[in-house]
Simulated assay, not measured.
Amino acid sequence: MEFIMAFLVGGTLCLLFQIVADATKAPVPLILLVGLALGGILTPFGIMDQLAEWGGAGFTIMVVGAGQAVCATTQAALAGNPWPLLSVIGVFLALTAIGLGCGSGYCALHKQDDNAHGDDAAEKQATIARQ
């Protein structure tokens, strides 16, 4: 029964986030940040704990569960234990570094592609300059 509840809750959350993404045409990172913030906002009210109890892993693995984790680690830091918050910050920094590395590699790769087709790029720039 746990698997069914996890599937239903996780699937419902995915559906809701997909509806929001399709309706607003917002970029995916913004949708994820909204989910993260939503998890952080709902945690102090006990809503996240109730949903996590009901939906299990289908709920806690979602981005709103990450918001709950950030909220809980911040509360732990305010209570005098900074290590959970520092570990979350470390994970975010590591993910940011990975994203920057991948983005830089992607841009460098596509810049090489543009340079390899220099004649095409030069023609496009000349056409733009003429207009």
Rank of each mutant, 00 (worst) to 15 (best):
G58D: 01
G58K: 11
G58F: 14
G58A: 10
F59G: 03
T60L: 14
T60E: 09
T60G: 00
I61W: 02
I61H: 07
M62S: 05
M62E: 09
M62Y: 02
M62R: 04
M62W: 03
V63S: 05
V63E: 06
V64P: 02
G65Q: 07
G65E: 04
G65C: 10
G65S: 03
A66C: 11
A66I: 06
G67E: 00
Q68K: 14
A69M: 13
V70T: 04
C71W: 07
C71Q: 11
A72K: 15
T73S: 14
T73Y: 02
T74R: 02
Q75D: 06
Q75A: 15
A76N: 03
A76D: 08
A76I: 06
A76V: 08
A77V: 09
L78N: 06
A79G: 11
G80Q: 07
G80M: 04
G80I: 13
G80C: 10
N81A: 13
N81I: 15
N81M: 10
N81D: 13
P82C: 04
W83P: 05
W83Y: 05
P84F: 00
P84I: 10
P84T: 04
P84D: 00
L85C: 02
L86F: 08
L86S: 02
L86T: 03
L86K: 04
S87G: 03
S87C: 10
S87R: 07
S87A: 15
S87Q: 05
V88W: 01
V88S: 00
I89A: 12
I89H: 00
G90K: 04
G90C: 11
V91H: 00
V91W: 01
V91L: 15
F92L: 15
F92N: 02
L93H: 00
L93W: 12
A94R: 01
A94S: 07
L95S: 10
L95Y: 05
L95I: 13
T96C: 10
T96M: 14
T96G: 02
T96R: 03
A97K: 02
A97F: 15
A97S: 06
I98M: 12
I98R: 02
I98E: 04
G99V: 08
L100Y: 08
L100A: 08
L100H: 11
G101S: 08
G101M: 14
G101F: 15
C102I: 11
C102S: 07
C102V: 14
G103A: 12
G103W: 13
G105T: 05
G105W: 14
G105S: 07
Y106K: 07
Y106Q: 08
C107Q: 06
C107K: 09
A108P: 01
A108Y: 05
A108H: 11
L109Q: 06
L109M: 13
L109D: 06
H110C: 05
H110E: 09
H110F: 14
K111S: 11
K111F: 09
K111A: 14
K111H: 13
Q112S: 12
Q112M: 11
D113M: 04
D113K: 13
D113Q: 12
D113C: 05
D114K: 09
D114P: 04
D114N: 09
